[in-house]
Design a protein around this nucleic acid. Structure first.
Lengths: 116, 116
DNA sequence: ATTCTATGTCGTAAGTATGCGACATAGAAT
DNA sequence: ATTCTATGTCGCATACTTACGACATAGAAT
């Protein structure tokens, strides 16, 4: 039974890790940036703008959609994706809280040394 | 030749993805939180506080160290880890820039609808 | 010198991610 | 009705991650 000690951590830690995982591939970062830049929620044009096959892009989209970071709406033949900005704002707050917690402590030596 | 389209994305996207990947496991989130909470940069005590074997924790530590997010300093028999707060601050800024970019655009319908 | 202890590395097993071609589906166009 | 087109799903190959026991190393303690 490898893989799956995840449950042993706090929900907060799991949530942060889950979102981090969604951002852990440049294609998904690129997709979010694309959706943010275009006013229109482009659909399969996303695939055309990325150096990946349509299939692979579709999978990345599903991963983002599974976390509800993006949403898709069918419009006839095409599908229209857009960012869930409300969720993204909440996630931003979570990350900020984490980083503030992480950077508020004792500082390491500026070069390479621990402050032990 | 699977795996490795990474190079086709911008350095910025790759960098964000790299760090996100480091945070993409609750154990590593927990490690950073632990190091932030303890004043002393504890070493193998980290392993004792996590529900994972010493080996596995060591691997997670190496991953964080590889990105320079944490630093280790040998002190006799024990090793003393601490956060690289300067880097963490820079990373925080990168994430913030990304999230602001992502949340500044057109907002989705509050319920479920795209604004296409 | 020998033993003890804290860490790290190796090897392995099993799960997961990445990437894509081929197929399926379903609306649009003719 | 048939064909075209935009998407999604399946299955596969390969690579990476996670997790851990067993071994290696190296300083401390006796």
């Amino acid at each position: 039974m490898t893989y799956a000690k995840t449950a042993a951590f706090t929900e907060e830690q799991q949530q942060l890790a889950r979102v981090a995982k969604a951002l852990a591939h440049p294609a998904r970062v690129a997709i979010i940036q694309l959706l943010a830049s275009k006013q229109t929620c482009i659909s399969g044009d996303i695939a055309a703008e990325l150096p990946l096959s349509r299939t692979t892009v579709s999978q990345h989209l599903q991963e983002l959609k599974a976390l509800d970071l993006i949403r898709g709406e069918i419009d006839g033949l095409t599908v229209c994706y857009c960012l869930n900005t409300a969720l993204l704002q909440r996630v931003h707050q979570q990350f900020t809280a984490f980083f503030i917690e992480a950077t508020s402590g004792a500082v390491c030596g500026p070069d390479d040394a621990c402050a032990c």
